[in-house]
Design a protein around this nucleic acid. Structure first.
Lengths: 118, 118
DNA sequence: AAATCATGACGCAAAATTACGTCATTTTTG
DNA sequence: CAAAAATGACGTAATTTTGCGTCATGATTT
């Protein structure tokens, strides 16, 4: 197929070519794919109960950046944010995290049963 | 740092501000953060033993793209590739996957002990 | 030896992620 | 009510990811 120019472009997001299950898992893993987000989850777990949004001070990043990460965690439904006056309470979605744990575990233990060698 | 204006721009990768543990976990989760890579892992598990690199035909993406994903999985040490003549055999690194499973499990079950409510 | 095959390096373009600054809005508080 | 606080929306720059085409290299076939 000999072209003198590049005609074609059209890049990115072929993710819908995969099963919804894989897409879903990939999305969740992606939510965990940044240390800041892991740190946020840990902090929320540590604090035990819902706290107002002073999370930014615990994370070595700017407030708006932390907010961005919070948004991503919220979109992955791993945390919940409820407005309380001027402040916002964030807390873990324990159910979702437990589901993720289970799903992740199932995937990963389903993976290495073969005991493959090279 | 004696600048009156923003000369500087310097965005991105503050990841070293976090603990090596969180960085490590985030890196691993990132390796799992694309459906194609999950599909590759599943396929390798299914095939039981090491196979030559016809993985590309199983994945609905171009060969070089699949190669890229293989490279990422290899860099995360989740798979191994050994050259055999003109071909390359890929197989799971069962130990690494088991470690990841354990680590992921520990992280996620450590997270929701609080039974937080909002 | 020549054609074919398999693979990875390289480069490129589009898109997404990361990190912030600024601003508008909505509370609180003095 | 006015100032201060808290938050999210929006914009922006740099960087990374995604997806692919092309090419060089090193086997395999024939």
């Amino acid at each position: 197929m000999r072209h003198d120019f590049k005609i074609n472009t059209m890049t990115t997001t072929k993710t819908d070519l995969f099963s919804p299950e894989l897409q879903h898992k990939a999305r969740l893993f992606k939510a965990l794919a940044h240390p800041a987000r892991l740190a946020i989850l840990q902090y929320l777990a540590e604090i035990k109960c819902c706290i107002t949004g002073n999370i930014a001070e615990e994370i070595p990043l700017g407030r708006t950046t932390v907010n961005q990460h919070l948004k991503e965690l919220k979109e992955a439904d791993l945390i919940r944010g409820t407005v309380e006056g001027a402040k916002t309470n964030y807390c873990l979605n324990a159910q979702a995290i437990e589901d993720l744990r289970r799903e992740s575990d199932a995937f990963l233990s389903g993976i290495d049963v073969g005991k493959n060698f090279c």
